[in-house]
Amino acid sequence: MHIPTFRTQDDPGPDFAALLRSQGLGPAAPASAVTTAGTIPHGTTVVAIRYAEGVVMAGDRRATSGNLISHRSIEKVFPADRWSGVAIAGAAGPAMEMVKLFQLQLEHYEKVEGEALSLEGKANQLSQMVRNHLPAAMQGLAVVPLFAGYDTRRTVGRLFQYDVTGGRYEEDDYATSGSGGLHAATVIKLGFADGLDRGDALDLALRALVTAADEDSATGGPDPIRGIWPVVATIDAAGFTRVDDQELAERYATIAGGAR
């Protein structure tokens, strides 16, 4: 372990990304288009839906490299900190790295400053990280996340969607990202109502993912044979809670019963 020291004017403050750059550990953008190096894994459909107590986030488990399925059980929904979550779509490698860095950025800020960032501050942080990633996105490594959290100061669930340039758009009701996002969004749009309860919001997210998997080859459906279910989490006053597979399997059984 090496303790970094700084002159006052070079001090990176609570910014972990700046600290990494100062130590020469910051990520470098690829020099040429990555597609020339062959296809790389991409993650696809993620959704976020607001409900009465907070926000539901869900993502399928498939990663594809061109026509091939590269992973069946990749995870795309992560806790960002105790009160917020981030879901990723796009080039899997850089996306995972971005999530890791984002989680660390929030934790680092909280530890250095002694107080957590506001939800707004977290959303802006992610926006900056997506924008800094633009050179890599231009070379074929686009990452387009969703961010959702429970705003402990306003006591509501809020969700944000991004574009590849770091544009940040707060959505009122729901947001989707990834190749199956369009189909998922249609399902959610038709099923959404203000003040959904937890169970209805979970079912809506699961149905949206099923439809996305039906229509989009890059989105994986539920896999009862291997027991692979989407990653689903709720974020409410109790914080980020991952929904366990048992409950998902039961909900899928009910959905399948009514879907024929």
Partner: peptide, 23 residues
């Protein structure tokens, strides 16, 4: 603050398990 930085950098470069009080 220097300690938080050192620990977070070490955890980022290696793994969270590798961060220890002795070092």
């Amino acid at each position: 603050i220097a300690g938080v930085r050192a620990a977070d950098l070490k955890g980022y470069s290696f793994s969270r398990e590798d961060v220890d009080a002795r070092s």
